[in-house]
Design a protein around this nucleic acid. Structure first.
Length: 556
RNA sequence: GGUCCUAUGGAGAAGUGGCUUAACUCAUCGCCCUCUCAAGGCGACAUUCACGGGUUCGAAUCCCGUUGGGAUCACCA
């Protein structure tokens, strides 16, 4: 007669520690009342997803505002999907967004007393727990092949039964210990399943910090907890790790709600207190083909990868602020009232989180991005633009390096004042706005027909530009500069202001606005450009004259 | 299909039975200001809360049903 113990020893001969030993090695944390221990547990299967950044943001916030601990655990038990180096990349990207763990897997090393924080290094911990489950008869080896399972599924489908490995369908449940022992000795491949005592007809009541309290069917599936490759499945690793790492609140994506009954049963069977749960809504997007909402997809949506925002030159904080508006409905009013500052003082609450997934709103992100960029002074924005350019934008890098002071002067147009301009939302598009300041871009611009108002003849344009070249000076004082322009306009027959012009349009060639537009188009190639007086000041008189000459000769 | 969640304007949302002829923010549009573009100021934008019933003196708010949307049903996490 083979006992459970003998079977367990056969499967895990190398495991000599007990669960009690683990409890001692990972004692309850000594933290102040109310401190939350949260964790972000990504799989190293690719770069950071915007939804993951959202999750990690909430984890970080909940821990930090309660003076608790936020740690990262690498869930690398799916060896097939693993991408080398992506774990480290994940942490680097989190860091860019200001989300740094207090403990755990930190990319290049681990920190903390509750490690290892990489699941593949925790195999012995899982085995220790599973060995006990085996001894207790709460788990058993299963020899079914994927073909067996496939057949079972088909059978259940044809009978319109719930699919899965449970109850009478759990064939290996009833194998005798002798049979199991023999087959394992034989070297037969096996997994270990949890022996569920649940009944699908019965409901359990669960509480989620966001969704509230609701009923859900008990788990009755004998889920796999130990794969044939020797690593645990997510469900089991979650129970073990969050118990021994002493997590107080598990914050994860909504896709886990459905497996909550499994986790509840696992914690119960192990005799452990389950953590609190908060299941975050998924960030969505309307699918262009179907017109339906769907989860942001890394393959289809550029905004699903956090790297997109970095490479496009968004200020990381703007994405974080946007994500916070999704996280808490009262955040937006709060941050507006605080003039976009001190966001770490905002008090996050699960109650203020909507439990339906929001559509990712690029327009709103851009709003935050513009506001944040407008708040920077000329040196800050120039330095940040340069940092960005060095990494992702060679053309911008060349432009800045060509003359850093010139670039800063450009950045300073309409900036350090009460109501600064808000044209820029990201560094990636900055040259689209100010490229005309640079010779190469300017030459490309004036190759195209310039958008002069058709009511002016070539002769009128040349007359106006010649007069401006002759009489208009560069001046930092906008009032003086504009008065000069007005005088020139009046002497040429333009109305000095819009009211005069509107009252009697026949009496004038145009109004002063028209004259300004002629100059603006000449210098920038566009009808809309930053403050003209400032543009001229930054360009300098010599360059202004050169551009006027160039346009005049092209008109001829 | 089973199970769970969910439904307020273009988007995010406030709202927890009378204070709502539904806050606030983004977007959009209009006007003012103005050398342009912005910024700023002012204003418009859901007679109605998916639909249908019910409870109530009274419902966006409570109940039931219908419909729509989302999540999930692996030796993936």
């Amino acid at each position: 007669m083979i006992t459970n113990k003998q079977l367990a020893d056969l499967i895990f001969p190398e495991i000599t520690e007990t669960i009690d030993d683990l409890e001692k090695r990972y004692p309850e944390r000594n933290l102040p009342e109310g401190a939350e221990v949260t964790r972000f547990a990504p799989s190293p299967t690719g770069f950071l997803h915007t939804g993951s950044l959202f999750t990690s943001l909430v984890c970080h916030k909940v821990a930090s505002q309660s003076k608790g601990v936020f740690y990262v655990r690498l869930e690398d038990t799916d060896t097939k999907r693993e991408i080398a180096g992506s774990g480290e990349e994940l942490l680097k990207q989190m860091h860019i967004f200001g989300i740094d763990p207090d403990e755990g897997y930190l990319g290049d090393h681990e920190e903390g007393k509750y490690g290892p924080y990489i699941q593949s290094k925790r195999a012995d911990i899982y085995k220790t727990v599973i060995k006990q489950l085996l001894v207790d008869g709460k788990a058993y080896p299963c020899f079914c092949t994927s073909e067996d399972l496939e057949e079972l599924r088909k059978e259940q489908e044809s009978k319109k039964l719930n699919p899965g490995y449970y109850g009478e369908f759990a064939k290996c449940r009833n194998l005798t210990n002798e049979e199991k022992y023999e087959r394992i000795k034989n070297g037969d491949k096996f997994v270990i399943r949890f022996r569920s005592s649940g009944n699908h007809e019965n409901k359990i009541t669960v509480t989620d910090l966001i969704k509230g309290t609701f009923d859900i069917a008990q788990n009755d599936q004998d889920i796999v907890i130990y794969k044939s490759d020797g690593l645990p499945t997510y469900h089991f690793a979650h129970a073990c790790d969050d118990h021994f790492m002493r997590t107080t609140t598990v914050i994860r994506g909504e896709e886990w709600v459905a497996s909550l009954p499994i986790h509840v049963e696992l914690f119960e069977a192990l005799g452990w207190k389950a953590p609190n749960y908060a299941h975050l809504p998924v960030i969505m997007k309307v699918d262009e083909e179907t017109g339906n909402k769907r989860k942001l997809s890394k393959r289809k949506d550029k905004e699903a990868a956090v790297s997109f925002f970095i490479e496009d030159g968004y200020l990381p904080k703007s994405l974080i602020m946007y994500l916070m508006t999704i996280a808490n409905s009262n955040f937006e009013e709060w941050i507006l009232a605080n003039k976009f500052e001190g966001m770490e003082n905002f008090e996050f609450s699960f109650k203020k989180m909507n439990n339906e997934g929001a559509l990712f709103d690029m327009g709103k992100l851009n709003f935050f991005a513009r506001e944040l960029l407008a708040k920077l002074n000329k040196d800050e924005i120039s330095a940040l633009a340069y940092e960005y350019a060095k990494l992702y934008n060679p053309e911008l890098k060349a432009a800045i390096e060509y003359n850093p002071a010139y670039f800063t002067a450009i950045m300073n147009i309409d900036r350090e004042k009460a109501n600064p301009r808000k044209d820029y939302e990201k560094f990636g598009h900055i040259l689209d706005f100010i490229g005309f300041f640079y010779e190469e871009r300017y030459q490309n611009i004036i190759k195209e027909p310039l958008p002069f108002n058709e009511k002016f003849s070539k002769e009128a344009l040349i007359e106006a530009l010649s007069a401006i070249k002759e009489k208009l000076h560069v001046n930092q004082d906008e009032q003086i500069w504009f008065n000069e322009l007005k005088e020139i306009g009046v002497s040429l027959g333009y109305a000095a202001n819009n009211k005069d012009y509107k009252a009697n349009p026949e009496a004038y060639k145009g109004n002063i606005g028209d004259l300004a537009e002629i100059l603006r188009i000449t210098l920038t190639g566009r009808k809309n450009a930053p403050n003209l007086c400032a543009v001229m000041y930054v360009l300098g008189l010599e360059e202004t004259h050169r551009r006027i000459d160039e346009v005049i000769s092209s008109l001829k």
